[in-house]
C-alpha cells in the first residue's frame, strides 16, 4: 500500500508540474517542475513520509531500465548515424570527457576556495 500511495503522490506532483508549465508557459518539462514542487513541499513539511520513500527507492533503484525504450529509438536514425557516426561518436565521447574533467575540476576548486572562507562567515 505504501508503494502505491507513494506512486500516486508522484503522479499528482507530475500533473501539478505539467499544469504549472502550461499556466506560466515555462520552457521546462512537467516532471522537472513537479520535482521542484515536491521538494518545496518536503522542505515546508520538514520530513519525508514512508510512502514517498518506498516509491522513490523502488523507482530510482531501477532507473536504468526506464532509459532503455528511448535508447532503442536510436535505430530510427540508422541512415543519419551511418553518415555522421564519426562526428557524433567523437563529439559524445570527447564532449563527455571534457564535461567530466571540467566539472570535477571546477567543483574541487570552488569547494576548496569557499570552504577556506567559511570560518569567517560564522
Amino acid at each position: 500500500m505504501d508503494f502505491i500511495l507513494g506512486v500516486a503522490l508522484l503522479i499528482v506532483f507530475q500533473l501539478l508540474g505539467e499544469i504549472t508549465v502550461i499556466l506560466f508557459a515555462l520552457p521546462v518539462s512537467g516532471p522537472v517542475v513537479g520535482l521542484v514542487l515536491l521538494l518545496v513541499t518536503l522542505i515546508i513539511r520538514g520530513r519525508v513520509g514512508k510512502q514517498l520513500k518506498a516509491a522513490s527507492t523502488t523507482l530510482l533503484g531501477h532507473l536504468s531500465l526506464l532509459f532503455v525504450p528511448a535508447g532503442v529509438g536510436l535505430m530510427l536514425h540508422y541512415q543519419l548515424l551511418a553518415k555522421e557516426w564519426l562526428a557524433i561518436s567523437v563529439a559524445l565521447v570527447i564532449g563527455t570527457v571534457i564535461m567530466l574533467v571540467s566539472t570535477a575540476a571546477i567543483m574541487s576548486l570552488t569547494t576548496r576556495l569557499f570552504s577556506k572562507g567559511q570560518p569567517h562567515e560564522h
Binding site: V7, L10, I11, F13, Q14, G17, G30, P31, V32, G34, L35, V36, L38, L39, L42, V48, L52, K53, A55, S56, L59, L60, L63, L66, F67, A70
Partner: peptide
C-alpha cells in the same frame, strides 16, 4: 515511468 521517477528525485 521516467516522469514519476524524475519527480521522485526530490526525495534523495
Amino acid at each position: 515511468l521516467l516522469g514519476p521517477a524524475t519527480v521522485s528525485l526530490a526525495v534523495p
